[in-house]
C-alpha cells in the first residue's frame, strides 16, 4: 500500500531529517508509529499524505504519487491531525460539507460513531477540544478511506472515549485498508497495533509485526540481583529487573510490552536491528 524507496526528506536542504529510507506498509494492518518527541513521526505521516514532499527518492501511496494530491488519491486518505481546528458551525453541517468529497462515506456509520463517542449535537465552537477531535475521528472512520492516519489520536480524549476509539478501530480494520497510528501513549492502543514502526534520529529502526517480535524476543521479569549478558535491554527497580532477551525455540512466547520494546529499540538499536532486519 505504501512504498518508500530511498526517500530523503528534510525541512531544509542542509539538515536532512530522513536519509534514504526504505519502508513498506501493507494493507490489512494497524501500524503503530513509535518514536521520541521530535523523532520525525509526524513528518513521516505528512510524507505519506502528500503534505510534505520528498527531496529525493520515490514514494508511492495507494498506487499514486502523494505529491500530486489528486482527488482520487486524496479521497482514499484520511488524516486526523494531533491538533484540531474547526469552523464555527453545527457538527452536522460541518460533516455535510465534507461528505460529497468522499465517495465511500457512510452517513449512518458517522452518526453511530458520534453517538458512541458521546459527541453532543451542537455547534462545533461550543465543543471542547476532545469533542472536536472525536468529530474528526468519527468523520475519518466513516469516510471508509483506504489509508487512515491518526496522529496522536488519544491526546485530549477522556477515558471512556479511548475505549470506544479502540472498539472503532477494531471494527474498521479489514484486508483492504491500512491504519497508521502515531502515539506516545503506547498503553492506550497497544492491543490494537499489529505492526510496529520504530523511528529514531531520522532512521527507521524496525518495521515488523508483533507476531515476529514475540517470536523473536521475550519480555520478562526477574527478581534476582544479577544482570545477564544475554539481555538485550533491562530496566531496574526495587521490584527487580524487567528485561528483553532473545527467545529460544523451546521457550513460551510472552506478552509484547511495547514500552519495553520501544526503550530497547532506542537504547540498544544495534541488537534490535540485528534481530529484525534481514537486510543489514
Amino acid at each position: 500500500m505504501i512504498h518508500f524507496n530511498n526517500v530523503s526528506f528534510g525541512y531544509t536542504k542542509q539538515k536532512p531529517l530522513y536519509a534514504n529510507i526504505q519502508l513498506e506498509l501493507k494493507s490489512g494492518s494497524v501500524y503503530g508509529l513509535l518514536g521520541k518527541n521530535g523523532a520525525g513521526k509526524s513528518t513521516l505521516l505528512k510524507l505519506m499524505a502528500g503534505l510534505v514532499h520528498p527531496q529525493k527518492g520515490l514514494l508511492t501511496v495507494c498506487n499514486a504519487n502523494p505529491m500530486k494530491r489528486e482527488p482520487d488519491f486524496l479521497n482514499q486518505v484520511f488524516f486526523i491531525p494531533e491538533e484540531i481546528d474547526t469552523p464555527n458551525i453545527h457538527v452536522l453541517d460541518f460533516a455535510a460539507e465534507q461528505v460529497p468529497f468522499y465517495p465511500r462515506f457512510n452517513q449512518t456509520q458517522f452518526l453511530d460513531y458520534l453517538k458512541e463517542l458521546d459527541v453532543p449535537m451542537t455547534k462545533l465552537n461550543k465543543m471542547s477540544f476532545g469533542q472536536k477531535k472525536k468529530v474528526w475521528i468519527a468523520l475519518g472512520m466513516a469516510s471508509n478511506a483506504s489509508l487512515i492516519i491518526l496522529d496522536e489520536p488519544t491526546n485530549g480524549l477522556d477515558i471512556p472515549s479511548k475505549r470506544i476509539l479502540r472498539k472503532l478501530i477494531a471494527s474498521i480494520v479489514n484486508e483492504d485498508n491500512c491504519i497508521i497510528i502515531s502515539t506516545h501513549q503506547v498503553k492506550d492502543l497497544d492491543s490494537l497495533i499489529d505492526q510496529i514502526i520504530l523511528v529514531d534520529n531520522g532512521e527507521i529502526i524496525v518495521n515488523t509485526d508483533t507476531n515476529t517480535i514475540i517470536e523473536k524476543i521475550i519480555f520478562q521479569h526477574s527478581n534476582q540481583q544479577e544482570i545477564s549478558n544475554s539481555w538485550i535491554y533491562h530496566e531496574t527497580s526495587i521490584a527487580g529487573h524487567l528485561f528483553v532477551k532473545k527467545r529460544e525455540m523451546e521457550e513460551d512466547v510472552s506478552k509484547l510490552d511495547l514500552e519495553l520494546f520501544f526503550n530497547a529499540g532506542i537504547t540498544n538499536k544495534i541488537a534490535i536491528q540485528e534481530l529484525f532486519n534481514q537486510k543489514s
Binding site: A49, E70, P71, F73, N75, P81, T86, F101
Partner: peptide
C-alpha cells in the same frame, strides 16, 4: 488566513479536489 492553523491547512490541502 486559515494557513495560520495547521489543522485547517491540512484539511484544506487534503480535501479531495484539484488545485
Amino acid at each position: 488566513g486559515f494557513f495560520k492553523s495547521e489543522a485547517k491547512t491540512i484539511q484544506f490541502l487534503l480535501l479531495p479536489a484539484t488545485t
